[in-house]
């Protein structure tokens, strides 16, 4: 019961290897954007949970935790925001074939990220509550902080690899998409931090 098809090759069909949609975001960037979208939903759930738990518990924050030291978190925020600028510098560098700017900016970003992590661990250890204490407050506080830190760590490892690759001649003005994807992800990590910072330290 097979049907006979006209020979497709002789027809005026579209050429192979081309696509209908040639403009817009490149495939890796689009993939990154969608990945970031899913991450946004992840953090939205955690932050949403914070506000739900805040609404069902009174007082919030619990007694004994009325104040949090804001100095170190503010410094950390500044560091992370700066690192977003240096990350952008890395893309500018490789796009303009300036390897020095590229590698230096990437290394700076990586360094700022690592310092942020160290600072955050220092801050977390200095707090006198933990996962299980003070009801759900400690739970949600450290969960949000911890998952954000894990994302920063992921970015740091990714940039460490790329810095190394850049130093030994990887990437070029025509081939820097992986760097760009990493930088977009880094911007996301920064923006989420602003929400995390305001939720955990300012709004409370």
């Amino acid at each position: 019961m097979t049907t006979t098809l006209p020979a497709i090759k002789d027809l005026d069909g579209p050429p192979l290897g081309q696509t209908e949609d040639a403009g817009g975001l490149s495939m890796p960037l689009m993939g990154t954007v969608l990945f970031i979208a899913s991450e946004i939903m992840f953090f939205a759930t955690l932050l949403g949970s914070y506000y739900v738990l805040r609404s069902v518990n009174n007082p919030w924050p619990p007694e004994g935790l009325e104040t949090l030291d804001l100095v170190l978190p503010l410094i950390l925020t500044m560091m992370l925001l700066t690192s977003s600028i240096t990350a952008h510098g890395a893309v500018w560098g490789i796009r303009n074939n300036n390897r020095t700017v590229f590698v230096t900016s990437l290394a700076l970003t990586l360094l700022l990220g690592a310092m942020f992590l160290v600072g955050e661990i220092f801050d977390a250890v200095s707090l006198d509550f933990d996962f299980g204490s003070h009801g759900a407050y400690g739970s949600i506080f450290f969960t949000i902080l911890g998952f954000h830190a894990l994302h920063v760590l992921g970015g740091v490892i990714f940039f460490a690899y790329q810095t190394f690759a850049g130093m030994v001649g990887g990437f070029s003005p025509r081939n820097y998409q992986a760097v760009e994807c990493g930088v977009w992800y880094w911007h996301f990590v920064d923006v989420v931090w602003i929400f995390v910072f305001f939720t955990l330290y300012v709004v409370r």
């Binding site: 619990p62 996962f131 009801g135 759900a136």
Partner: peptide, 12 residues
């Protein structure tokens, strides 16, 4: 040992 969903300790 967190308490997100533990009603006895402020969870929901």
């Amino acid at each position: 040992g967190a308490n997100f969903f533990n009603p006895q300790a402020g969870g929901d």
